[in-house]
Computed example of a mutant assay.
Amino acid sequence: MLGFSIRASAESNKVSFDAQAVLPDNQRSDVSYYDLKVQPGATQQLTLKLRNTSEKPIRVKVEANNAHTNQNGALDYSKHQQKLLGGPTFEELISKPQTITLESGQEREVSFQLTIPKAGFTGTILGGFYCYEDTKDQENKGDGFSLENQFAYTIGVRLECSDETVAPDIRLTKVKPGLQNGYLTVFATLENPVPVVMSQLDMTATVTKKGEKQVLREVKKKVSFAPRSPFKLPISWENEPLKKGQYQLSILLKAPSGKAWHLEKSFAIKGEDEKLNQEAVEVKKEENHYLVLYIVLVSFLIIILGLVWYIAKLRRDKR
């Protein structure tokens, strides 16, 4: 769930370094990431082992980041200084990012100081060490490096200080139309305001006109929520133009435990929101139903007139 991962581009699958956690004595399980039971007011070092597997010197940057919920509904550790809905957060408890230089084949350890508040904390604090090659010098020299071909390791950190149970909670706080990568989208903001990890929930989200039952848009997927994290769910408008009016968003979330949340929120698409139709990269043209009806009626009239003329002509010919 939290674990050890590597992310590489399609252009370059060559990994230039390895990273792994040096697990401390207060590790609670046999997973490869940090799963720690900590004590109020305690301090300790969290150590990672880095090894250069390439044939040239490299610099590796290691950031200690808060876990958050990305737009795919997945736990993400790749953003530094990601704001959460409360604290304490992992970044508040851990020392600053570090950049380590490694010669070819060299192995080094890098340590971060973890400081637990004297009052402790309830629930779960979730974060991770995000390790990636620092290629700014190569980018400045124009050597073909970019963020597009960067790879990274993530090593998760899960901290718990007490055995007190925290009840899960999910809220639907805002619904607003906008653009995602230039495409018309309605964004729903959900929040997990409590220090609890919620994993692999089945989600069904539907949009209807307010007071009507016909489903205009539907999203079905599995989602996970990081502790104290908002989740901005994008609902594609499928290139249909936005039309002003009153709408209703309904979201059903089911946890593996069987617990369910049914969330609803009304929202408006206003006249000013229709301006997004001009900004979008693609919008389907609306069918002019009156024009279609006019064409059908004219065609029907022509057919009737043709039949009348044909029948009249037959009668004249008989005479």
Rank of each mutant, 00 (worst) to 15 (best):
K49L: 14
K49N: 12
K49C: 07
R51N: 07
R51W: 00
N52S: 14
T53Y: 00
S54T: 13
S54C: 02
E55L: 12
P57H: 01
P57Q: 13
R59G: 02
R59K: 15
V60A: 04
E63L: 11
N65V: 05
N65R: 01
N65M: 01
N66I: 13
N66F: 11
A67F: 02
A67N: 02
A67T: 07
H68K: 00
T69E: 05
N70R: 00
Q71D: 11
Q71M: 09
G73F: 03
G73A: 02
A74Y: 02
A74P: 00
A74M: 10
D76F: 14
Y77G: 03
S78Y: 09
S78V: 00
K79Y: 05
H80V: 02
H80I: 05
K83W: 00
K83M: 11
K83V: 13
L84C: 07
L85G: 11
G86F: 12
T89M: 10
T89V: 08
T89A: 09
F90N: 09
E92M: 13
S95I: 13
S95E: 07
T99Q: 10
I100H: 05
T101V: 11
T101K: 11
L102E: 08
L102M: 12
L102T: 04
E103V: 00
G105K: 08
Q106M: 07
E107D: 12
E107N: 05
R108G: 07
E109P: 06
V110R: 11
S111W: 10
F112W: 11
F112S: 04
Q113S: 06
T115C: 07
T115F: 04
I116V: 15
I116C: 01
K118F: 05
K118G: 06
K118A: 15
A119F: 01
G120K: 09
G120W: 12
G120R: 13
F121T: 07
T122R: 11
T122Q: 14
G123L: 08
G123M: 09
T124A: 03
I125V: 15
I125M: 08
L126E: 09
G127E: 08
G128E: 04
G128S: 06
F129D: 10
C131L: 15
E133H: 10
K136V: 15
Q138A: 15
E139S: 01
E139N: 01
N140S: 10
N140I: 01
K141F: 07
K141N: 07
G142R: 04
D143K: 13
D143H: 04
G144V: 09
G144M: 10
N149I: 13
F151N: 14
A152H: 08
Y153S: 03
Y153C: 00
Y153L: 01
T154N: 13
I155N: 05
V157C: 06
V157T: 07
R158S: 10
E160V: 13
C161A: 14
C161E: 15
S162L: 02
E164R: 11
E164W: 01
V166K: 04
V166G: 06
V166R: 06
A167Q: 12
P168C: 08
D169L: 15
R171H: 09
R171I: 00
R171E: 11
L172H: 07
L172F: 05
T173D: 12
P177Q: 06
P177S: 07
L179N: 02
L179D: 01
Q180H: 12
G182L: 06
Y183E: 13
Y183C: 00
L184Y: 04
V186Q: 04
F187A: 04
A188M: 04
